[in-house]
């Protein structure tokens, strides 16, 4: 056995070229983002020629009424959509994990996660047509249509972490609550919900970021004057591009990072 005793145990970190591949991946991932952020501080008016440091494009974006309008709409839309989607996803997750397995449960999983599988453009066209019919029939206008559309495609993103959390939960805890005189509602309120909360928060934040980022469905569903930040930026690209777009992108990036960091801070176990 001494002959084989010299061999070191297998470790992926000692694979030849592993470090190089890892570094290449990180460079490819972050170079565009770093470039975007750096050029958002460009003093000149071209997005590819560096002319010195300046905050002028942030000031310009901040004072741009169209950007203000789109930003507020994006945030309101993301907040409403993630609220509704998370509520529905929580109910769906409870309905698919806290019941005896029944025929067709797998089909229901597939139906809940449908937005992940159907090409987004197809959903977009379908919603455009459906909403057009409804608008003609009822005459109702407004942000409702975008909220409904965003809620729908955010549900699976909220559903997956909530369901994972529910499935990992010890069912004996709910049994114990019932044993200690808690009615089914009290058990849910005092035991299931608090333990589920990190999952719900994760789902809500994921849904928020997904909604904030959406272009395709929003572009099809929005009415005139209902620009969100991404559709506004897309519209700008058809005209003159200035580093203002970099500044807006950087701000959007910052919001996403803050949301994700908040999530980690809130769900971290106090030690």
């Amino acid at each position: 056995m001494a002959l084989f005793g010299q061999r070191r145990p297998f470790s992926i970190r000692r694979l030849p070229g592993f470090t190089m591949i890892a570094i290449t991946c990180f460079v490819l991932l972050y170079t565009p983002i770093v470039t975007l952020v750096v050029y958002s501080f460009n003093a000149g008016k071209y997005i590819a020629i560096w002319e010195g440091f300046s905050l002028q494009w942030y000031v310009a974006a901040w004072n741009n009424a169209a950007v203000q309008d789109a930003t507020i709409r994006s945030l309101v839309l993301a907040a409403l959509a993630s609220l509704f989607a998370t509520t529905l996803a929580t109910m769906a997750a409870l309905g698919t994990t806290r019941v005896k397995p029944f025929r067709g449960l797998t089909a229901i999983y597939a139906m809940i996660n449908q937005p992940l599988m159907v090409p987004e453009i197809v959903t977009a066209v379908a919603l455009l047509i459906l909403f057009a019919v409804i608008k003609v029939a009822t005459g109702v206008q407004g942000l409702y249509y975008l909220v409904a559309a965003h809620t729908a495609f955010c549900i699976p993103f909220a559903y997956l972490p909530i369901r994972a959390r529910l499935e990992g939960m010890d069912l004996t805890l709910e049994t114990a609550a019932a044993d200690l005189y808690a009615t089914p509602w009290q058990t849910f309120r005092r035991v299931t919900l608090p333990l589920l909360f990190p999952g719900i928060l994760a789902g809500a934040m994921l849904a928020f970021v997904i909604s904030l980022d959406d272009v395709v469905i929003t572009e099809f569903v929005k009415s005139a004057g209902q620009e969100t930040l991404p559709t506004y930026m897309l519209g700008q690209l058809r005209r003159v591009i200035t580093p203002e777009i970099n500044a807006i992108s950087t701000a959007l990036l910052a919001i996403s990072i803050i949301v994700v960091s908040l999530f980690f801070v809130i769900t971290r176990k106090p030690s």
Binding site: D170, T172, L173, T175, A176, A178, D179, L180, Y181, A182, T183
Partner: peptide, 15 residues
């Protein structure tokens, strides 16, 4: 139902 019985349980996993 369990919540209407004056019976309490010590679970194997403590719960």
């Amino acid at each position: 139902p369990p919540y209407q019985r004056s019976v309490n349980t010590v679970f194997q996993s403590y719960a």
